[in-house]
Design a protein around this nucleic acid. Structure first.
Lengths: 232, 232
DNA sequence: GCAAACGCTTGATCTTTATCAAGTGAGGGG
DNA sequence: CCCCTCACTTGATAAAGATCAAGCGTTTGC
């Protein structure tokens, strides 16, 4: 693994407080690989051999059952994924694929578990990270169970707006059909839902979104930090 | 807090490996309280003052938004809840209410965080616990997004059957209307869904369930350990 | 012991969402 | 440059689920 990747990884919350010696020992066994788009990195049900870190690009976490498929989350740089499976030494619950050309660091799971046992600061950082992940999924589940698809879309747009700086105009970070899957609806219904938000001043052309009447949309969407604020 | 409650709590995965001194210091600040049914123990959005442990009875974790409410999970003895909020010192994401007369231990969150910083075994146990919780929610989300309500009910029955020993006959652990909420449907639709499973040999009278043709139901339900096995 | 309350069920109807089929438009390769 | 592919859209239809209203049976409390 090229040393130039170290600083980016070292700065991650999960690694930044750990002893340098332990960090180095993690990096020794790690390697970095460039993947093209649409490559399946891991498959649900398989043993968790590596902790993955997205250095650049985008990764989709998805699950399948009975010939159906759904997107669970999208991972963007710089962050890890499938931490829980690595820690528990349990099979992956989700599959992962690259959505675009991506650079991924792979750290052998057994190294992570070994350092986890040796470095208390690392163990603590992992607790914080897992608690964060847990709370994010709970929020996603509240979104799913308490809101209609139109409400989910409206709140997604508001979240994405905030994430991209807060201006009235911004870009969708996802292909529409993948966004549909994330929001738990079909692509057809996403199209219709976008139309359904026009009366609230939402204009979408291609991947570009303009919110013409912020208040109007927020009155409809009723965003709530206990569902929509993924930083706490 | 009566010493007689100590052993039960001490045996929890999360406490069983920690130093006795630290366990004692947690217990010093803790207290146990008996609550009647239908008492709201915590309210979402409030700061997480206490880690809760259900010693007996049943607790429902639920969430609300825009005058809607949904059950997120049911907590049974002996286990903790709202661990993530305690660790992160963040507001509760869910509310909790007793479903029946319940005995609850309350440990001040700041004590938990203090001992978490001092006791590495405790910190490690919490990681395992959180990873477990995280994976459970992911499974619940897959259940929600990949299955119809009839399929969710069928798989819930199979899970409940296994939990209660595996016999063809067993009891629902929940009021039907609460089960409906857990499964993400209305009570009316749960009634109809139960009827809808009759062709697969499911008989329900009151809270008592009999699965007359196990294979037939499983062929329909297609249970999958990556969704339905909450022990891994 | 009786009446009120409540949980559950049922039927009718409406809304939401999915499915199927076809068409449009932009981008990429020959 | 044109055609093919593919994502997206649109419309028609079907299925799934929610809502509303009423009724039934059990429990609860005076």
């Amino acid at each position: 693994m090229p040393d130039s990747d170290y600083p980016d990884i070292r700065e991650l919350d999960i690694f930044k407080d750990m002893q340098n010696e332990h960090f180095q020992s993690l990096m020794r066994g790690a390697y970095v690989q460039n993947f093209p788009a649409q490559i399946e990195l891991i498959t649900e049900g398989e043993p968790s051999d590596f902790l993955h870190i997205v250095l650049s690009g985008t990764v989709d976490l998805f699950s399948t059952w009975n010939n159906r498929e759904t997107s669970m989350a999208t991972v963007r740089p710089i962050s890890t994924f499938i931490l829980a499976a690595t820690i528990k030494d349990a099979p992956y619950l989700m599959s992962a694929r690259t959505l675009e050309k991506s650079r991924i660091a792979l750290i052998p799971s057994q190294d992570v578990r070994a350092v986890f046992d040796a470095d208390n600061d690392f163990a603590r950082a992992i607790v914080t990270e897992l608690a964060q992940c847990y709370r994010s999924v709970i929020k996603a589940q509240k979104d799913l169970k308490l809101r209609s698809s139109l409400e989910r879309l409206a709140n997604y747009l508001l979240r994405q707006q905030k994430r991209s700086g807060g201006a009235p105009s911004f870009d969708l970070a996802l292909e529409k059909r993948r966004l549909a899957s994330v929001l738990g609806m079909t692509p057809e219904n996403l199209s219709r839902a976008i139309k359904g938000l026009q009366p609230y001043g939402v204009m979408v052309t291609g991947t570009h979104v303009t919110i013409e009447d912020q208040d109007d949309l927020e009155r409809f969407a009723k965003p709530n930090p206990l569902i929509d604020d993924h930083t706490t």
